[in-house]
Amino acid sequence: MKHTLSVLVENNPGVLARVAGLFSRRGFNIDSLAVGMTDNSSVSRMTIVVEGDERYLEQLNKQLHKLVDVIKISDITRDAYVDRELVLIKVSADAAKRAEIMQLVDIFRARIVDVSPKTLTIEVTGNDGKVTAFEDSLRPFGIKELVRTGKIAMLRGKRASSKNHINKEEDES
């Protein structure tokens, strides 16, 4: 089963290498990983999607915890959460197909962000299901290039999977 982990890390140089290195050397497979700063510039959030059974996830969780730069890990898979992914798709679109593609863009509430005589570049956001459906419906036209940001996620309601404002005491003298 696929798990979505929301991981808070100290925004230190090399933190991504530490996390990625851990996954590769312990043989864990990452489906996707998205990383960016939180509202606290010294803390970053990684949203990691991995597939595996409970025991596999438990071991992954514990190994991740051992990294000194990892502050908190929340497996939000079973909680209600919103997730989004941004995808850019460059699709072949000659004059004859253009109208049909634009209709699909409307239906999926996507956006055309670049136009050339032979192609359209489309931006779409949504959860995995929507993005995959959109990709499938464009496939017959000929996808020339596709790039996904990886999923980011947040719990629904007032709960936070982890506080961004960690009590980061300054190094006292």
């Binding site: 100290e10 990294l67 980061k168 006292e172 003298s173």
Partner: peptide, 11 residues
């Protein structure tokens, strides 16, 4: 100055 205490929020 040698710090007496350091912050390691993830440890």
């Amino acid at each position: 100055k040698y710090p007496k205490k350091v912050a390691l929020p993830g440890y």
